[in-house]
Design a protein around this nucleic acid. Sequence first.
DNA 1: GCCACCTTACTCGGATAAGGACTGTCCGAGTCGCTAAGG
DNA 2: CCTTAGCGACTCGGACAGTCCTTATCCGAGTAAGGTGGC
Lengths: 161, 161
Amino acid sequence: MKLSNGVEWGLHCCVVLSQAEEPQPAARLAEFHGVSPTYLAKHLQALARAGIVRSTQGQDGGYVLVKPPAEITMLAVVEAIDGAEPAFRCTEIRQRGPLPAGKRECRAPCPIARAMANSEAAWRDSLAAVSIADLVADVDAETGGTALRKTRGWLREPAAS
Amino acid sequence: MKLSNGVEWGLHCCVVLSQAEEPQPAARLAEFHGVSPTYLAKHLQALARAGIVRSTQGQDGGYVLVKPPAEITMLAVVEAIDGAEPAFRCTEIRQRGPLPAGKRECRAPCPIARAMANSEAAWRDSLAAVSIADLVADVDAETGGTALRKTRGWLREPAAS
DNA sequence: GCCACCTTACTCGGATAAGGACTGTCCGAGTCGCTAAGG
DNA sequence: CCTTAGCGACTCGGACAGTCCTTATCCGAGTAAGGTGGC
């Protein structure tokens, strides 16, 4: 099981966007994080499709958070980029082979699928309990406010490179 | 995020093996589940490497559970087949770009990595709380004991095909 | 009748191709801001 | 001086290759059982 690398980028971008007052182009966010601009753009498109960010075109355009950071959960970002499909998909092999399970007991998912679904629900609940605002608060507490202040300053600067 | 398909096969095989008294060859387990024999063999090798099953070669050989079903957790099977590496791997992009985080705050993982690790821990805990014996009990309760009885009967039969 | 050996068939184990998904990239459509001309 | 049309540059969005991992398969090494010959 491997989570797409873009999830990390998307979460970091949401944290940075929460500190920006003006739209930030994808290229600028990529420069800030030192990652591929074109590939990051692809993931930002996914965030836009999910309604987490809104894009503005043209001069001084870019991406802005749609909702306040406290209302954006990590789960929303993860599902926007990685997809909302469950990691475990039951292929109903109990209905195959020489002893197929009857239709009676197959109205409910098999115990294995249920246990896997429960575990994934625990994972999702844990992700849904953390918002972008919580991440921002953690960063702020860890760095004593310096990191976010420097970030806000850098975002206000005109594009240097 | 997609979980390997072999996880489902491995769990079903463990349930079936818990009902068998004699070693069961990979081909027979594949026939029972109606899946590819060679590919299932690959996953059974992974279970053997993890110490969940033990293989016996030669005539009347096959796979047997090493430990009692109550001591085999779903987590062990999942990690044996899918790997124990975490799904989210922090690439430390906070140390890149024009505003790299200082060494001071990088001694601890960044808040994003911590939150993801917490969520994965919740997932693992949930999987570790369910054993093969629990799955067997669920199947037994659902089918009124018929499914397991039929399975045990089929396992005692000599290879038909 | 008992034992040792051999043959046989069966089993696993790792090494080997094919398909699909993630990674990474590019160029075109659309839009906003700026400029400059005209009233 | 104000308005308006045009231009230019910048932005996103979707379509296009490359690479890694999952899927699927095969054949060889090793082993236990069963048969056979000898004692």
